[in-house]
Design a protein around this nucleic acid. Structure first.
Lengths: 224, 224
DNA sequence: GCAAAGATTGCAGTGTGTGCAAGAATCTTC
DNA sequence: GAAGATTCTTGCACACACTGCAATCTTTGC
């Protein structure tokens, strides 16, 4: 898959991404995939870095050029949101908490959707997070990094200082909803529609919880 | 410090706590203290389990009978709230989100206050959490455990199911405020009153954020 | 082409974390 | 109080995680 057939420059003049960067991205993805696959099969505690790197076709030493630990290799989602996702969110109208949370629900729902195409591996990773303490720590650290990114985006949208208290709290609350949605889905599988629906559900519940006076109008509708 | 002078049984009939449990609790505390002290002095990455155990007067092997890793030894706060704290919170009046969050602010403010008597070590540990990735993971995992405990208490108070969505979200939001208060205090040292005041502040900001229609009475001195 | 920059790898070495079994301290029961 | 059951400590051995260094090879920029 994705192999051979060096496509002659038809539509891809490789603008800023050299061959080097491409390969690097690829081996990283391969290491991640190998980690998840093996953890799924044998349980993370019985998977060694040696196995992973062999499975991915690189040396054990190389593994550590890509991931600090076995656990961090479980999570491949990029450091934060896409350029596009962030831009869309930032430039959306409304800067009150409710509007921000509404849009964040959308953003993360689509984000999760794109992130879990097969969803098979995603599911297993989340199950692992609940089971293995070290995996939990890595997962939460990853969430924390995402939260910081998120705070930046929120600040850009509301015009607040990036390190302000309000911004940080909003980001934290949003990530709480994301985690809640993901974990509930992984545990109860109560949303056959997939994790994205579960995340969206958590955001809805969150907004309902926060402003009982408001009771936002049935979601769905975009405010001008 | 804390050495010698085996106090003859004057006022301590040791009702339900045997000598064994007492010693166990003590060496645990000593290992924790040694870890923090050494990490503060040399930086966590340069502290080995061997150093810690030597400092605490036990064998390296014994260290692992108490803590799974070096990092977890940084955090000594017990698994959750005190019996008393929990009881008081559970039986307080009001079961809406705002009332719950208000009381949780109080609970955690006092909890943090009791936890950080000297506050010297506490401060360093939080600074470490921001600096060392592995420490961050351990810290967040610890917070997660506390969050689960908290969910139980909230459920007892509101009468909801302990694993319900609303309960989980409330607990997550509350822990977000706690973390925010602690980290902001450790970073900016903007609250000379100590971490408890900072945590309280975060809860106030959170409640103000959630229900803008409410605008809880006063308590805010400053605005961003 | 050629030189700078970057990636992979082997090797050696430190440190983490676990299973096991022997020994010492504490608790139980009579 | 003394024997016996628990529990804690510790040393030992071992697998594995992770790092620094230096050699080698590939990509890149000129």
């Amino acid at each position: 898959m994705t192999s051979g057939t060096a496509a002659s420059a038809v539509r891809e003049p490789a603008p800023a991404e050299g061959l080097r960067a491409r390969r690097r991205r690829q081996t990283r993805a391969e290491l991640h995939a190998a980690t998840v696959r093996l953890a799924r099969e044998h349980g993370l505690e019985h998977v060694t870095v040696e196995m992973i790197s062999k499975e991915a076709g690189v040396s054990p030493r190389t593994f550590f050029n890509y991931f600090r630990t076995k656990e961090t290799a479980l999570f491949a989602w990029p450091g934060g949101l896409t350029e596009a996702e962030a831009e869309q969110f930032v430039s959306a109208p409304g800067r009150g908490p409710d509007a921000v949370l509404r849009d964040l629900g959308d953003v993360f729902a689509t984000h999760v959707d794109e992130m879990a195409p097969g969803a098979g591996a995603f599911e297993d990773v989340l199950a692992l997070v609940e089971k293995v303490p070290s995996a939990l720590g890595a997962f939460l650290a990853e969430c924390d990094a995402l939260e910081r990114d998120l705070a930046g985006a929120i600040a850009r949208r509301t015009g607040d200082a990036p390190d302000g208290q309000t911004v940080a709290l909003l980001a934290g609350i949003a990530m709480t909803a994301v985690r809640n949605g993901l974990m509930r889905w992984a545990r109860d599988k109560q949303h056959p529609d997939g994790p994205a629906a579960s995340v969206r559900d958590s955001f809805t519940a969150l907004r309902g919880l926060l402003a009982p006076a408001y009771t936002p109008p049935a979601t769905t509708e975009r405010e001008a």
